[in-house]
Design a protein around this nucleic acid. Structure first.
Length: 350
DNA sequence: AAGCCGTGGTT
DNA sequence: TAACCAAGGCT
Protein backbone atom coordinates (compact mmCIF):
# COMPACT_ATOMS: atom_id res chain seq x y z
CA UNK A 1 0.00 0.00 0.00
CA UNK A 2 0.88 3.62 0.25
CA UNK A 3 0.95 6.42 2.81
CA UNK A 4 -0.43 9.36 0.88
CA UNK A 5 0.18 12.05 3.49
CA UNK A 6 3.76 10.91 4.14
CA UNK A 7 4.62 10.84 0.45
CA UNK A 8 3.00 14.23 -0.01
CA UNK A 9 4.82 15.86 2.91
CA UNK A 10 8.19 14.47 1.79
CA UNK A 11 7.56 15.94 -1.64
CA UNK A 12 6.40 19.26 -0.19
CA UNK A 13 9.51 19.58 1.99
CA UNK A 14 11.53 19.79 -1.22
CA UNK A 15 9.15 21.34 -3.73
CA UNK A 16 6.99 23.78 -1.79
CA UNK A 17 6.48 26.90 -3.89
CA UNK A 18 7.44 30.13 -2.21
CA UNK A 19 4.60 32.59 -1.70
CA UNK A 20 4.63 35.92 0.16
CA UNK A 21 2.07 34.72 2.73
CA UNK A 22 3.48 31.23 3.10
CA UNK A 23 5.77 29.96 5.85
CA UNK A 24 7.99 27.42 4.13
CA UNK A 25 8.19 23.94 5.69
CA UNK A 26 11.72 24.36 7.07
CA UNK A 27 10.78 27.60 8.83
CA UNK A 28 7.57 26.10 10.11
CA UNK A 29 9.54 23.20 11.58
CA UNK A 30 11.77 25.79 13.24
CA UNK A 31 8.75 27.21 15.00
CA UNK A 32 7.81 30.11 12.75
CA UNK A 33 4.06 30.73 12.80
CA UNK A 34 2.15 32.27 9.91
CA UNK A 35 0.33 35.58 10.33
CA UNK A 36 -3.36 34.52 10.41
CA UNK A 37 -4.36 37.82 8.83
CA UNK A 38 -2.00 37.30 5.90
CA UNK A 39 -3.20 33.71 5.50
CA UNK A 40 -6.86 34.69 5.59
CA UNK A 41 -6.27 37.50 3.09
CA UNK A 42 -4.49 35.11 0.73
CA UNK A 43 -7.21 32.46 0.99
CA UNK A 44 -10.00 34.91 0.19
CA UNK A 45 -8.04 36.26 -2.77
CA UNK A 46 -7.29 32.73 -3.96
CA UNK A 47 -10.97 31.78 -4.16
CA UNK A 48 -11.39 30.83 -7.83
CA UNK A 49 -8.25 32.83 -8.59
CA UNK A 50 -4.74 31.78 -9.55
CA UNK A 51 -1.66 32.30 -7.39
CA UNK A 52 -0.08 34.36 -10.18
CA UNK A 53 -2.98 36.81 -10.15
CA UNK A 54 -3.07 37.06 -6.37
CA UNK A 55 0.59 37.83 -5.61
CA UNK A 56 0.59 41.53 -6.48
CA UNK A 57 -2.79 42.18 -4.86
CA UNK A 58 -1.76 40.47 -1.64
CA UNK A 59 1.43 42.54 -1.43
CA UNK A 60 -0.51 45.73 -2.13
CA UNK A 61 -3.09 44.98 0.56
CA UNK A 62 -0.45 44.04 3.14
CA UNK A 63 1.39 47.29 2.42
CA UNK A 64 -1.76 49.43 2.59
CA UNK A 65 -3.28 47.64 5.59
CA UNK A 66 -0.65 45.64 7.55
CA UNK A 67 -3.08 44.34 10.18
CA UNK A 68 -6.72 43.34 10.34
CA UNK A 69 -7.37 46.45 12.45
CA UNK A 70 -5.94 48.66 9.73
CA UNK A 71 -8.15 47.01 7.16
CA UNK A 72 -11.20 47.27 9.39
CA UNK A 73 -10.62 51.02 9.66
CA UNK A 74 -10.26 51.56 5.91
CA UNK A 75 -12.78 53.37 3.73
CA UNK A 76 -15.02 51.09 1.69
CA UNK A 77 -14.22 52.92 -1.56
CA UNK A 78 -10.47 52.58 -1.00
CA UNK A 79 -10.73 48.84 -0.53
CA UNK A 80 -12.98 48.38 -3.56
CA UNK A 81 -10.54 50.44 -5.65
CA UNK A 82 -7.61 48.34 -4.45
CA UNK A 83 -9.48 45.15 -5.32
CA UNK A 84 -10.42 46.40 -8.82
CA UNK A 85 -9.31 43.95 -11.50
CA UNK A 86 -9.22 40.91 -9.26
CA UNK A 87 -12.87 40.00 -9.83
CA UNK A 88 -15.68 38.53 -7.74
CA UNK A 89 -16.18 41.84 -6.00
CA UNK A 90 -18.48 40.43 -3.33
CA UNK A 91 -15.26 39.05 -1.86
CA UNK A 92 -13.98 42.57 -1.25
CA UNK A 93 -17.20 43.65 0.41
CA UNK A 94 -17.19 40.56 2.62
CA UNK A 95 -13.49 41.03 3.31
CA UNK A 96 -14.24 44.35 4.97
CA UNK A 97 -17.25 42.97 6.84
CA UNK A 98 -15.10 40.12 8.09
CA UNK A 99 -12.23 42.38 9.19
CA UNK A 100 -14.67 44.58 11.10
CA UNK A 101 -16.29 41.54 12.72
CA UNK A 102 -12.90 40.22 13.81
CA UNK A 103 -12.14 43.55 15.44
CA UNK A 104 -15.59 44.04 16.94
CA UNK A 105 -16.34 40.49 18.07
CA UNK A 106 -12.95 38.79 18.48
CA UNK A 107 -10.69 41.51 19.84
CA UNK A 108 -8.82 41.88 16.54
CA UNK A 109 -7.64 38.27 16.46
CA UNK A 110 -8.89 35.62 14.10
CA UNK A 111 -10.66 32.77 15.87
CA UNK A 112 -8.77 29.47 15.56
CA UNK A 113 -11.82 27.27 15.61
CA UNK A 114 -13.17 26.04 12.27
CA UNK A 115 -16.81 26.62 13.25
CA UNK A 116 -16.13 30.14 14.53
CA UNK A 117 -14.31 30.98 11.30
CA UNK A 118 -17.24 29.61 9.31
CA UNK A 119 -19.55 32.19 10.86
CA UNK A 120 -17.53 35.10 9.47
CA UNK A 121 -18.56 36.84 6.21
CA UNK A 122 -16.87 35.47 3.09
CA UNK A 123 -15.54 32.41 4.89
CA UNK A 124 -17.13 29.18 3.67
CA UNK A 125 -16.21 25.54 4.25
CA UNK A 126 -13.02 25.68 2.20
CA UNK A 127 -11.63 28.92 3.64
CA UNK A 128 -12.50 27.97 7.22
CA UNK A 129 -10.58 24.72 6.80
CA UNK A 130 -7.68 26.41 5.04
CA UNK A 131 -7.24 29.13 7.67
CA UNK A 132 -7.57 26.79 10.63
CA UNK A 133 -5.12 24.33 9.08
CA UNK A 134 -2.57 26.70 7.57
CA UNK A 135 -2.61 29.50 10.15
CA UNK A 136 -3.24 27.42 13.28
CA UNK A 137 -2.17 23.90 12.30
CA UNK A 138 -5.56 22.45 13.21
CA UNK A 139 -6.36 19.06 11.61
CA UNK A 140 -8.97 20.47 9.21
CA UNK A 141 -9.41 19.03 5.74
CA UNK A 142 -9.43 21.35 2.76
CA UNK A 143 -11.49 20.41 -0.27
CA UNK A 144 -11.03 22.68 -3.26
CA UNK A 145 -10.85 22.06 -6.98
CA UNK A 146 -7.30 20.73 -6.67
CA UNK A 147 -8.11 18.30 -3.90
CA UNK A 148 -11.22 17.09 -5.71
CA UNK A 149 -9.12 16.27 -8.75
CA UNK A 150 -6.41 14.54 -6.73
CA UNK A 151 -8.98 12.46 -4.82
CA UNK A 152 -10.92 11.47 -7.94
CA UNK A 153 -7.68 10.18 -9.45
CA UNK A 154 -6.19 8.56 -6.35
CA UNK A 155 -9.39 6.54 -5.94
CA UNK A 156 -10.24 6.27 -9.65
CA UNK A 157 -13.70 7.53 -8.75
CA UNK A 158 -15.83 8.40 -11.79
CA UNK A 159 -18.71 9.94 -9.85
CA UNK A 160 -19.43 13.33 -11.46
CA UNK A 161 -18.94 16.59 -9.57
CA UNK A 162 -20.48 18.39 -7.78
CA UNK A 163 -22.52 15.39 -6.61
CA UNK A 164 -19.28 13.60 -5.68
CA UNK A 165 -18.16 16.28 -3.22
CA UNK A 166 -19.17 14.52 0.01
CA UNK A 167 -17.46 11.31 -1.12
CA UNK A 168 -14.30 13.15 -2.10
CA UNK A 169 -14.36 14.97 1.23
CA UNK A 170 -14.44 11.59 2.91
CA UNK A 171 -11.39 10.44 0.94
CA UNK A 172 -9.59 13.69 1.73
CA UNK A 173 -10.33 13.38 5.43
CA UNK A 174 -8.77 9.96 5.51
CA UNK A 175 -5.55 11.25 3.95
CA UNK A 176 -5.22 14.35 6.16
CA UNK A 177 -2.04 14.48 8.24
CA UNK A 178 -2.52 15.00 11.96
CA UNK A 179 1.14 15.73 12.58
CA UNK A 180 1.45 18.54 10.01
CA UNK A 181 -2.05 19.57 8.95
CA UNK A 182 -1.03 23.00 7.63
CA UNK A 183 1.76 21.71 5.43
CA UNK A 184 -0.42 18.84 4.29
CA UNK A 185 -3.22 21.18 3.15
CA UNK A 186 -0.77 23.27 1.17
CA UNK A 187 0.98 20.20 -0.20
CA UNK A 188 -2.17 18.63 -1.74
CA UNK A 189 -3.10 21.92 -3.36
CA UNK A 190 0.43 22.51 -4.66
CA UNK A 191 0.41 19.02 -6.12
CA UNK A 192 -2.92 19.66 -7.83
CA UNK A 193 -1.72 22.99 -9.16
CA UNK A 194 1.64 21.85 -10.50
CA UNK A 195 1.62 18.07 -11.10
CA UNK A 196 -1.87 16.60 -10.89
CA UNK A 197 -3.14 19.20 -13.37
CA UNK A 198 -6.47 19.07 -15.23
CA UNK A 199 -5.24 18.41 -18.78
CA UNK A 200 -1.98 16.50 -18.90
CA UNK A 201 -0.94 15.47 -15.40
CA UNK A 202 2.80 14.89 -14.88
CA UNK A 203 2.41 11.37 -13.53
CA UNK A 204 6.05 10.67 -14.39
CA UNK A 205 7.25 12.89 -11.55
CA UNK A 206 4.28 12.49 -9.19
CA UNK A 207 5.10 11.40 -5.64
CA UNK A 208 1.66 9.76 -5.40
CA UNK A 209 1.98 7.65 -8.54
CA UNK A 210 2.41 4.40 -6.54
CA UNK A 211 -0.82 5.23 -4.66
CA UNK A 212 -2.86 6.29 -7.68
CA UNK A 213 -5.67 4.01 -8.86
CA UNK A 214 -6.38 6.17 -11.90
CA UNK A 215 -2.76 5.94 -13.02
CA UNK A 216 -2.91 2.18 -12.66
CA UNK A 217 -6.09 2.12 -14.75
CA UNK A 218 -4.87 4.76 -17.22
CA UNK A 219 -7.94 6.92 -16.60
CA UNK A 220 -6.28 9.96 -15.01
CA UNK A 221 -6.95 12.25 -17.97
CA UNK A 222 -10.71 11.54 -17.80
CA UNK A 223 -11.00 12.52 -14.13
CA UNK A 224 -12.64 14.19 -12.39
CA UNK A 225 -15.95 13.71 -14.19
CA UNK A 226 -18.15 16.79 -14.18
CA UNK A 227 -21.77 17.42 -15.04
CA UNK A 228 -21.87 19.55 -18.21
CA UNK A 229 -22.29 23.30 -17.96
CA UNK A 230 -24.90 25.45 -19.63
CA UNK A 231 -23.81 27.56 -22.62
CA UNK A 232 -23.24 31.29 -22.07
CA UNK A 233 -25.68 33.68 -23.77
CA UNK A 234 -24.45 36.93 -25.33
CA UNK A 235 -25.84 40.17 -23.94
CA UNK A 236 -25.56 43.70 -25.27
CA UNK A 237 -25.26 47.08 -23.61
CA UNK A 238 -24.10 50.67 -24.02
CA UNK A 239 -21.58 52.44 -21.80
CA UNK A 240 -21.60 56.24 -21.63
CA UNK A 241 -18.14 57.77 -21.18
CA UNK A 242 -18.50 61.51 -20.63
CA UNK A 243 -16.25 64.35 -19.52
CA UNK A 244 -17.19 67.76 -18.25
CA UNK A 245 -15.57 70.84 -19.77
CA UNK A 246 -13.02 70.96 -16.92
CA UNK A 247 -11.98 67.38 -17.67
CA UNK A 248 -13.89 65.66 -14.87
CA UNK A 249 -15.24 62.18 -15.67
CA UNK A 250 -18.85 61.12 -15.16
CA UNK A 251 -18.85 57.90 -13.13
CA UNK A 252 -21.34 55.93 -11.15
CA UNK A 253 -21.00 53.76 -8.05
CA UNK A 254 -22.92 50.58 -8.78
CA UNK A 255 -25.46 49.16 -6.34
CA UNK A 256 -24.00 47.05 -3.57
CA UNK A 257 -25.54 43.82 -4.78
CA UNK A 258 -25.38 42.02 -8.10
CA UNK A 259 -22.89 42.19 -10.94
CA UNK A 260 -19.84 44.39 -10.17
CA UNK A 261 -21.63 45.35 -6.96
CA UNK A 262 -20.17 48.31 -5.11
CA UNK A 263 -17.71 49.09 -7.91
CA UNK A 264 -17.12 52.32 -9.77
CA UNK A 265 -18.09 52.31 -13.45
CA UNK A 266 -19.46 54.23 -16.42
CA UNK A 267 -23.20 54.72 -16.54
CA UNK A 268 -24.61 51.97 -18.76
CA UNK A 269 -27.86 50.65 -20.09
CA UNK A 270 -29.21 47.38 -18.79
CA UNK A 271 -27.40 44.43 -20.32
CA UNK A 272 -29.73 42.26 -22.37
CA UNK A 273 -30.85 41.32 -25.87
CA UNK A 274 -31.54 44.85 -27.10
CA UNK A 275 -31.50 47.36 -24.25
CA UNK A 276 -33.05 50.81 -24.62
CA UNK A 277 -30.65 53.78 -24.59
CA UNK A 278 -30.21 55.46 -21.20
CA UNK A 279 -28.10 58.61 -21.62
CA UNK A 280 -27.08 60.02 -18.25
CA UNK A 281 -27.24 63.54 -19.67
CA UNK A 282 -28.38 65.27 -22.85
CA UNK A 283 -25.39 65.72 -25.14
CA UNK A 284 -24.06 65.02 -28.62
CA UNK A 285 -23.22 61.38 -27.99
CA UNK A 286 -20.80 59.81 -30.41
CA UNK A 287 -20.82 56.05 -30.94
CA UNK A 288 -17.42 54.41 -31.28
CA UNK A 289 -16.76 51.98 -34.11
CA UNK A 290 -15.34 49.30 -31.82
CA UNK A 291 -17.28 47.76 -28.95
CA UNK A 292 -15.78 46.38 -25.77
CA UNK A 293 -16.06 42.61 -25.51
CA UNK A 294 -15.96 40.93 -22.17
CA UNK A 295 -16.92 37.56 -20.73
CA UNK A 296 -18.38 37.21 -17.26
CA UNK A 297 -19.01 34.00 -15.39
CA UNK A 298 -22.33 33.30 -17.05
CA UNK A 299 -22.61 35.50 -20.14
CA UNK A 300 -20.68 37.25 -22.90
CA UNK A 301 -21.06 41.00 -23.15
CA UNK A 302 -20.75 43.23 -26.20
CA UNK A 303 -20.58 46.73 -24.84
CA UNK A 304 -21.05 49.60 -27.26
CA UNK A 305 -19.25 52.77 -26.13
CA UNK A 306 -20.66 56.27 -26.55
CA UNK A 307 -18.71 59.40 -25.65
CA UNK A 308 -19.53 63.04 -25.13
CA UNK A 309 -18.29 66.30 -23.69
CA UNK A 310 -20.65 67.96 -21.22
CA UNK A 311 -21.03 71.63 -20.37
CA UNK A 312 -19.45 72.81 -17.12
CA UNK A 313 -22.89 73.36 -15.59
CA UNK A 314 -24.29 69.99 -16.75
CA UNK A 315 -26.57 68.24 -14.25
CA UNK A 316 -26.56 64.55 -15.18
CA UNK A 317 -29.51 62.40 -14.15
CA UNK A 318 -27.15 59.66 -12.94
CA UNK A 319 -23.64 59.35 -11.55
CA UNK A 320 -21.23 61.92 -10.21
CA UNK A 321 -18.17 63.74 -11.52
CA UNK A 322 -14.67 62.78 -10.49
CA UNK A 323 -11.93 65.29 -11.25
CA UNK A 324 -9.28 64.36 -13.76
CA UNK A 325 -6.66 64.42 -10.99
CA UNK A 326 -8.64 62.12 -8.70
CA UNK A 327 -9.64 59.64 -11.41
CA UNK A 328 -7.62 56.48 -11.91
CA UNK A 329 -8.81 53.82 -14.39
CA UNK A 330 -7.17 51.18 -12.20
CA UNK A 331 -10.02 51.68 -9.74
CA UNK A 332 -12.44 50.30 -12.36
CA UNK A 333 -13.39 46.68 -12.96
CA UNK A 334 -11.85 45.29 -16.13
CA UNK A 335 -14.88 45.65 -18.39
CA UNK A 336 -15.05 49.36 -17.49
CA UNK A 337 -11.31 49.73 -18.11
CA UNK A 338 -11.87 48.28 -21.59
CA UNK A 339 -14.53 50.90 -22.31
CA UNK A 340 -12.17 53.60 -21.01
CA UNK A 341 -9.34 52.41 -23.24
CA UNK A 342 -11.56 52.42 -26.30
CA UNK A 343 -12.93 55.86 -25.46
CA UNK A 344 -9.54 57.48 -25.00
CA UNK A 345 -7.92 55.70 -27.95
CA UNK A 346 -10.71 56.40 -30.38
CA UNK A 347 -11.86 59.81 -29.35
CA UNK A 348 -10.12 63.09 -29.90
CA UNK A 349 -8.75 64.80 -26.79
CA UNK A 350 -11.15 63.11 -24.43
C1' DA B 1 -30.28 24.48 -4.22
C1' DA B 2 -29.16 25.84 -8.50
C1' DG B 3 -27.92 30.27 -10.27
C1' DC B 4 -25.18 34.22 -9.63
C1' DC B 5 -20.71 36.29 -9.35
C1' DG B 6 -14.71 38.29 -12.79
C1' DT B 7 -10.74 37.62 -14.70
C1' DG B 8 -6.66 35.90 -17.04
C1' DG B 9 -4.05 31.93 -18.49
C1' DT B 10 -4.07 27.38 -21.12
C1' DT B 11 -5.25 24.37 -24.51
C1' DT C 1 -10.99 30.77 -31.11
C1' DA C 2 -13.77 29.14 -27.86
C1' DA C 3 -14.02 26.28 -24.04
C1' DC C 4 -12.08 25.19 -19.90
C1' DC C 5 -10.32 26.17 -15.51
C1' DA C 6 -8.67 28.37 -10.93
C1' DA C 7 -6.67 27.70 -3.13
C1' DG C 8 -15.58 29.18 -3.55
C1' DG C 9 -19.30 31.78 -1.13
C1' DC C 10 -23.83 33.62 -1.00
C1' DT C 11 -28.69 33.46 -1.72
Amino acid sequence: MCDVSEALLDWYDIHARSMPWRVMPADRKAGVRPDPYAVWLSEVMLQQTTVAAVRAYHSKFMALWPTVSDLAAAEDAEVMAAWAGLGYYARARNLLKCARAVVADHGGRFPQDHDALLKLPGIGPYTAAAVSAIAFDAPSTVLDGNVERVMARLHDDHTPLPAAKPVFMDYARRHTSHSRPGDYAQAVMDLGATICTPKSPACGICPLRPCCAAHAAGTQADLPKKTPKKPKPTRHGIAYVARRADGAWLLETRPDTGLLGGMLGWPTTEWGDDPAPAEPAPAQWQTLNDAARHTFTHFHLILQVRTAWLAQDARPSRGHFITAEAFSPSALPTVMQKAYTLATATLRPL
